[in-house]
């Protein structure tokens, strides 16, 4: 364990923030460029994960364990979100025979 602790010493917090912003941006781009609903939900998972990692990094930085507990709650929330979201996708697929997000435009105007 000592080597692991030695390994992380010296990475600036700014690099963690920048790395998590890059992953978050990749998630946003994924939501924007894909039309498959399942891939869009995966991109949302990517965004949630980047925020989780940043919370854990801040928690380790300030020596407070509340951040890691909060990450645990976010993971529980993500599991619930995925279960409900995939159930909705299955229901939509049963009705429209596709997972195209453009087929779901009845509430547009």
């Amino acid at each position: 364990m000592e080597t692991i602790v030695q390994n992380i010493q010296g990475v600036p917090l700014n690099h963690y923030i920048l790395f998590c912003s890059v992953i978050f941006t990749i998630g946003v781009i994924g939501v924007l460029i894909r039309r498959n609903v399942i891939i869009i939900m995966m991109s949302v998972e990517l965004m949630l994960n980047s925020v989780n990692l940043l919370l854990a990094a801040f928690s380790a930085y300030s020596g407070d364990s509340a951040g890691q507990v909060f990450v645990f709650f976010v993971m529980a929330l993500a599991a619930a979100e995925v279960a409900v979201g995939l159930a909705i996708i299955v229901m939509v697929y049963r009705n429209t025979r596709s997972v195209d997000i453009n087929a779901l435009n009845r509430l547009r105007w």
Binding site: Q9, P12, L13, I17, Q68
Partner: peptide
């Protein structure tokens, strides 16, 4: 921010 301090695990046992 410009607080580019490195992460030092003050309390490595919290996780």
């Amino acid at each position: 921010l410009e607080s580019s301090e490195p992460i030092v695990l003050k309390n490595p046992d919290i996780g």
